[in-house]
Structures are given as structure tokens and as C-alpha cells.
Amino acid sequence: MRAPMLFIAASLAVVAAAHAGSGAPVPLRVVGDGIPEPLAGLAGDPARGRAIVVDRQRGLCLLCHTGPFPEQRFQGTLAPSLAGAGTRWTVAQLRLRVADSRAIDPATIMPSYHRADGLARVAKPFEGRPILDAQQVEDVIAFLATLQDKEGPKR
């Protein structure tokens, strides 16, 4: 399991994406190795978050990850299991991991779910839009926080 990298908080403190339309990402307020405040001050819902995580069009998480989702066939093998993620990481760390994985490791294959800048050749329908909006990110974070070690085997 990789430890979170130390990274330059200053330059990444606010990734101010262009607020072109309604679907544009909100600014990410990074402090240290996490984002302590909920995006846009929104409260997340763990049940909605779970639905997003297992959804292969919206969350896409199981394309790469496995996790404690016994009903889900064909989970990916490109990333560590999500089981116990809420034990391993603080909510602030999880929020940065999901909203902007690139800030942790620019070479990661995990997409930055709440950034729309720094991308090339994005298909028209997705241009300027994050993969998950602020509410969806908060829902996913609320769900990940419930993934405590007792809930699934640590792989």
C-alpha cells in the first residue's frame, strides 16, 4: 500500500477551474495532504455514495478497484481494494484522493474526479465538466468513510 505523497500545498492550494457553465467544478481548497472542508459546503449521503461507487457510468470506481461489494461481478484489478479505506485515510485525505488524485501523484491512472483543467482532447459532451459534481464527490466521501476495516477484508 502506498503512503500518500507529500506535495506542494501552496501551488495546489486552490485549483481554480474556469467557471464556464453550471457544470463547472468548484474550487478545491487543499490544506496539507487533504481537503478538510466539504466541497461547496455540501453534506454527503453514504447510500447515494455507494450507488455512485458501484455505477460503471458515473463512479467508474470498480473498473479499477475491488471492494466490499459482494453483489458486483467483474471488479477491476488495476487498483487496491477500497475495503477499509475509511480506516486508512482521513475524510480530508479521501476528499483530495477522489477530487484530485493527480495532486497526490501526477502519474496516477486514477482520474481527478472534480477537475476539468489540464486535460487534452476531451469529448464535447464532457468538456469543462468534472466526472463527478461537488454533491456526488461528497456522497462518495461519506460512503468511503463508512468502509472501516471490520466491514471487509484488507487486501
Binding site: I109, P111, A116, L119, A120, V122, A123
Partner: peptide, 13 residues
């Protein structure tokens, strides 16, 4: 080798 698209993948990835 170009990372591209909303999901930011290169073919090589």
C-alpha cells in the same frame, strides 16, 4: 503516449 479525454488516459496507461 498522450493522456487524453475526461478520464485522462493514454493508450500506454
Amino acid at each position: 503516449r498522450l493522456r487524453q479525454g475526461q478520464l485522462n488516459f493514454s493508450c500506454a496507461n
